[in-house]
Every structure is written in C-alpha cells, then in structure tokens.
Design a protein around this nucleic acid. Structure first.
Lengths: 218, 218
DNA sequence: TTAAGTGCTAATGTATACGTTATAAAATAC
DNA sequence: GTATTTTATAACGTATACATTAGCACTTAA
C-alpha cells in the first residue's frame, strides 16, 4: 500500500535523503540523465523532484552543467541560524501567553533526559534525534501551524550542517544544561528568561557551526 | 530586447501573479491543458511552474481534478500575519543593533509621505504600492538576505488578502500615523518602541483582514 | 426509483522525441 | 605557440506521445 505514490515524489524523497546524507558530493554537478537512471526513473520525474529541491535551497539546476549540490556556506548558515533563532523566540513567546501544560513540560523533560543519557553513552545519533524532538515540542507549543512548518524547514536546513559536523565538534554538554534551563523558565512562565536562554543557545551553536564550516569549506 | 529566460520561469512568474492578483478564482480547479494554452506553453513548463507554486503554498496539484487555487482562510491568514509580524520584529531588532543610516530614514520618510499624499488623492493603488515599499525598506535594514527573502514571501501571501479587501475596508489612515511613529522610534534608536508599534500595526491589520475574510468566505 | 456494477472518457504521470544552444575541441590564421 | 574561428557534441528545455486510472454516466437488477 505504500508504493502507490507518484514516482516523482519517491524520487524527491530519495534525492533529498541523498543530499542530506551527503551521498552526493557537495559542490559537485550531476547530470539529469545519470541521476534519473540511478534512481530508476526517466528525466521527467527526476526533473520535477529537482525543481522542488531547488525551491528548498538544497541544490541548483544549472543549464548544461548539471544539478549542483549546494555547499553549506558559513555566512548563509549564520543568517539561517539567526532566522531560526527568531522563529523559536516567536514560538516560545506565543506559547507563554498561556501557562504551558504540565504534560508538555513532562514531554520536554523526558526528551531532555534522553539527551543526557545518550551523551553519557556517547550515542551522538540518539542525542541528535532527541535534540530535534526537543525543539519540535518547544515550537509546537505555539499552536501556530504555519510557524511550526516554517521552523521545521529551517531546522532541516541547519540539520545538514549539524550532521556534517556532529562528530567533529566537541560533545554538546552545554546544550543539555541550556535545555534544562529553558524548561525551568517555561515552568515559571518566565518568557524573557526562556527566550534569552534559547537565543544564547542558538547563538553559541551558530558560532561553533559556522567556525567549523569555514574550516571545512575552502 | 525581450528577456530570453526559460519559458517555465516566465510561466511561473505569470501564474504566480495571476494567483496573487486574484485573476484565477480562489477555490477553483484549472486543468493543466487550459492553463498551458492560456499562457502559451505546453504542459511541461506549466507543470514545472505549478510544482514551484505548490511548494510556495499558493496552489495544489490535485490528480484528475486539476490545479486547485488555495483559498485564503481566515484562521490561516491570522497565523500568517502572526509569523509576518514576528519576522518584522526580528528585522527591526537586528537593524537597530547599529544606528540606522540617515539615508535609509530619508527613504522611509519619502515613502511614508507618498502614502499620505496617495490617501489624500484617494489613490489606493499607489498607497498600497508604497506600503509594500515601506516594509521592504524596513526589513532590508536587517541586512539578513535570508530574512528578507522570507519576509517577502510572507508579505506576498498577505498581499493576496489585502488586495482582495483593499477597496472594501475603511481607508487606512491609521497606518500612516503608525508608519511615522515607527520612523521616529528608529531615529531615536528606540528598538522597543519601534517593535511595539509595528506589532500593534500588524495585529490591527490582521484583525481587520481576518474579519473581512470571514465575511467573504462562506 | 434507487443501488450496484460496468464501461468509457479524459486528465494525469511518465517516457520519449526533438530542436536549441552552450561548451569544448579542432582547425586555421597570425 | 597563441589566439580566434569553426564545428561537433551533448545536455537541456520543451513538446508530444502513451499508458494508467479516477470519476462519471449509463445500464441493469431489485
């Protein structure tokens, strides 16, 4: 029952996964024909998939050269982090206009706990998964579906860089502390504190990542 | 010399304009063939354009029914305004981290002036044009190109509703006052005041528009 | 008259064919 | 040997052809 989807959508998902997992070399060009064959489709569905990914900013369709896998440049990533940070600030502020439900606080605490344990086990993948989950729950508190969608798309953009650098950078111990602090602030309904901590969190993460990106990219 | 751009891009721009200007009836379905012929292209470029517009959320490609022009529902518009408001808040705050250049202030004042004059002449189209310009300059102050792009796309989304209601709603006199107040706050570097006024501005506009949308849509 | 079944139509999704044109190699001139 | 022109190739953008299938109408049975 799952294979009933359009071929172009399957290609879209596969191709995105290939880019996000760095299976396609960043900064390289791939011909439409090649990719189409590799994914078992003709040029038409591949092209439609590529157009959607181009809109998402992952690649660029360059006439006569091929499909260009866009590198993650430090200055762009810095801008994206700035936007992400503000969107989360918005979400937190909106969320705090009403007292945050205890059940949601509990969810956040559980996830934050998972992160601490994952870190103790040196399981960075699980840590990253829960990091994503934490921010999804946090932003979900806003109940603004447009905002949630938007944050998700920005999170995915930064995810590429995070995954690329996850095993290079220092263990994210401070992140865990900051998450706990955010939860505490939410419990008290202290919007300003929650926002402040989250912004600092993002700002630091942005700095660390862009520094690494500058090293990785010529 | 006419632009020798790709046909699919021309179709993309034309089709988007048609949707944003409400030339295509919101809530209706249009067949690919029809639209292609109407725009002087074959189905392929039309399809590629439609895919991009679907990603932007303006329409939906529904198998065997046609291309569905998404209606502007009041609850969604309310969410979109909330996001827009926050993005502008972000832009203003970032902009104010350094003193705003006098030349930019002058630009804003000129545009605000145009708006007042247009209103005196009952020229709502010119008023709306300058309203757009005002917010473009305002957001441009942030120097964050990602943020600028994002705000533009949200502005266009709200634009659809604004244009639909421009001649129905009361003359936007208060908007002009609010714009002047924002400029004053920027001059003084009073971030908080500028943000506060702008948020109120958006909040009021959002309320007015969503009320009208509820009346317009069954 | 209504409901279920069946066949037809037409719109889509995909494949493929085709013309255009950028790019690079070959050739020629200097 | 270098620079400019020519030519050939090949990748793309677009058109078109084709197979699939959803939806509707028509039929038939209760």
């Amino acid at each position: 029952m799952t294979k009933k989807n359009k071929l172009s959508s399957q290609v879209f998902l596969k191709l995105r996964r290939m880019v996000l997992d760095n299976e396609l070399k960043v900064g390289s060009y791939y011909l439409e024909q090649e990719l189409a064959e590799q994914l078992g489709a003709s040029r038409t569905p591949l092209r439609e998939a590529a157009i959607r990914l181009e809109q998402e900013g992952l690649l660029e369709i360059v006439p006569r050269r091929g499909i260009f896998i866009k590198p993650i440049l430090a200055p762009e990533m810095s801008e994206i982090y700035q936007v992400l940070s503000w969107l989360e600030t918005a979400a937190i502020t909106i969320a705090c206009q009403q007292p945050v439900k205890a059940s949601k606080i509990a969810e956040l605490e559980a996830v934050a706990d998972n992160m601490i344990k994952a870190l103790e086990n040196n399981d960075l993948d699980t840590w990253a998964e829960n990091d994503t989950r934490f921010h999804q729950i946090l932003v979900g508190l806003s109940n603004n579906s447009e905002l949630i969608r938007l944050v998700n798309s920005y999170w995915e953009k930064t995810n590429r860089a995070r995954m690329l650098t996850l095993r290079i950078r220092n263990p994210p111990v401070r992140s865990s502390q900051e998450h706990s602090q955010v939860i505490e602030a939410l419990k008290k309904g202290d919007v300003e504190a929650a926002v402040k901590i989250n912004s600092q969190h993002r700002s630091r993460a942005s700095g660390e990542l862009t520094d690494l990106l500058e090293v990785l990219n010529p």
